[in-house]
Design a binder for these strands. Structure first.
Lengths: 342, 342
DNA sequence: AGTAAAAACGTAAACGCTTACGTATTTAAC
DNA sequence: GTTAAATACGTAAGCGTTTACGTTTTTACT
């Protein structure tokens, strides 16, 4: 493997000059620089990043750290993988490489022992997951490494963040149902502690208020398919006049559709159902699920781009990025049938 | 941040002694070593990994590189994410960190410009995906870095690999149907070029031969849910006597179930269906899908463990690891109904 | 007590770059 | 043509460790 010395010897110049030539720094004549660069390509010379890091105290590594879900059976949420792909798409076109790790409870407890940071392996980091404690984020900010948090919001703290527009998305979802003529709308919500659920609920409520409607809201303790099933049954029992359901996520929406089928309700003829997330199986279900798409890949891209921007200009103030969610209209929603002229 | 000099000064010894104490190398009295280690913990001293790497020429980084799917719309296959989690689970307990990247066409074309390697950022790597060209793997082997390939097999080349037992799994799947009394079994296969499909098909065939049965095999050009639908329709048209379906993957199995419902066939009463993969949606479908589970997380673990083993002992010869797949019995398969005493 | 071997520690040279500073050479300005 | 300011390059000191090779001290053995 070629080293910088070799190039220096070939051109009978110092390694400092070669370094300057290769790094686009001033102090080298254009003619010499071009020849050095050309020869470097020929030799497939790539600077040893370890040596470069030590000398420049930059690793050109960024970390992507996802909080493991303590409550989730399915540890590996594809949501964060799609975000990872967005991040990769951006870093691949930069000088930076991506280092990943799962944030466990022990890391959270002892941030000072979080090795990617304590060993100074990274120049900046993306922290993903709603359940990263504020204290941990604070500890990371104190390292003075640039930080972007994704799918997480911190009140009263200046930190770069990327989130989807839960409230606006839910607002549009409800409007979609209202535009289709539905006036008796049931909402299947998650636990109150789940912040996204709360925000989405606000969006639904806002749209309903503007249309002069009152929603039939049901809170579940979980956000699983099964809880969606039971939610629909209870909702329908209490309010058989309901013609549309808005669920705070796709899993619950799919559960609601399943329960509806068991009750003899046809979707979308008797009941329209809209979800939130746009998970893969929504498109495979029968009927396919109308939902609000969260642009996960884009969220990853935004996070990575923001990080690179801060790396470029450390003076940059933190910003909160909110990406819009889009309606994906599929089979599970339809015009309300005008039964009995009601 | 504490540096090694600080420790050396505190104890009035040379940094060499501190380094030896911290790295469990001989040449330090037990008493001094213990005091140094204790004090290092107190100070949260962590050696700067960049300096350590440069001096020891080891990065303590391993790479996980997944081949992007040129043909797949859904670039981010959760399959490889689960493998990533398995890898992480192992590396988290080791001194190594995980660096990820997507293998694009341009990397494949010019392996010498693959930066994680050319910049010497990693000590070893895991290559995942069936469509990594042999030449690329060869190029990586030539770097003399330890390599493990996952979900990929190379003929006539000694290389560490981790794969699932396609053939054995399919054999068991077919046996499951046969044990349930089915004798007219349809097989929904993928394109001939897809190696996994071919191996699974061999497993089905083997079991059938042993039971003295002849399968009704249909090859599709794709492996999507839609092609599973059309496959079932054609299969049922040609062979209405079929009472069970074995599909080479879950997506096609789910498609077959959907088509069956449209034909008025009840699953599992009229038709048993078994898949392969155990994708998440299979458990949410109605009825839930019986399938063969590929232990993806374990595959990741095996790959990482193998890599660590080779890193420990570079003399270790390459080995081919095959992990078993297990039957996940759910609702979509049942005993064949004895119609007309047939 | 004397000697050899083992253990404990120090010295200093790497590792392969970047970069502050110094020197020589060119260009620009009058 | 002289002087000042750019420009081009060289020198050498890092960056924070590891480790080969010395040197000194302790241990073991006769």
């Amino acid at each position: 493997m070629a080293l910088i010395d070799q190039l220096a010897q070939e051109f009978e110049v110092s390694i400092a000059t070669v370094s300057r030539a290769l790094n686009d720094k001033p102090g080298v004549s254009k003619e010499l620089r071009d020849r050095i660069v050309a020869r470097a390509r020929e030799l497939d010379y790539t600077p040893n990043f370890t040596a470069r890091s030590l000398a420049s105290s930059r690793t050109f590594n960024i970390g992507y750290f996802v909080r493991e879900k303590p409550n989730l059976v399915l540890q590996q949420d594809p949501f964060y993988y799609e975000i990872q792909h967005g991040i990769e798409a951006v870093t691949a076109r930069s000088a930076y490489h991506l280092s990943v790790a799962t944030l466990t409870y022990s890391h959270i407890r002892k941030p000072s022992e979080f090795r990617p940071v304590s060993e100074r392996r990274i120049d900046a980091m993306i922290l993903a997951g709603p359940d990263i404690p504020t204290e941990f984020v604070m500890a990371m900010l104190k390292t003075s490494l640039p930080v972007v948090i994704v799918d997480n919001r911190l009140a009263n703290t200046a930190v770069n963040s990327v989130n989807c527009d839960d409230e606006g998305g839910a607002y549009h979802a409800a409007q979609h149902l209202i535009r289709l003529g539905h006036r008796q709308i049931g909402v299947i919500a998650g636990p109150l502690a789940w912040a996204s659920s709360a925000r989405r609920l606000r969006g639904y409520t806002q749209a309903a208020q503007e249309a002069g409607l009152r929603l039939h809201i049901l809170h579940e303790q979980e956000t699983s398919l099964e809880s969606g099933e039971s939610a629909l049954r209870r909702l329908y029992e209490a309010h058989p006049e309901i013609t549309a359901i808005a669920a705070v996520n796709d899993a619950m929406a799919l559960g609601a559709m399943r329960a509806a089928a068991q009750l003899g309700l046809r979707v979308p003829d008797d009941l329209s159902v809209i979800g939130f997330d746009n998970i893969a199986w929504g498109a495979m279900n029968h009927p396919t699920l109308t939902t609000m798409n969260i642009p996960k890949v884009q969220m990853g891209k935004e996070a990575a781009m923001r990080l690179l921007a801060v790396l470029e200009d450390p003076e940059l103030m933190p910003s909160e990025i909110v990406v819009p969610v889009q309606l994906v209209e599929r089979e599970s929603t339809a015009l309300r049938k005008e039964v009995n002229g009601q």
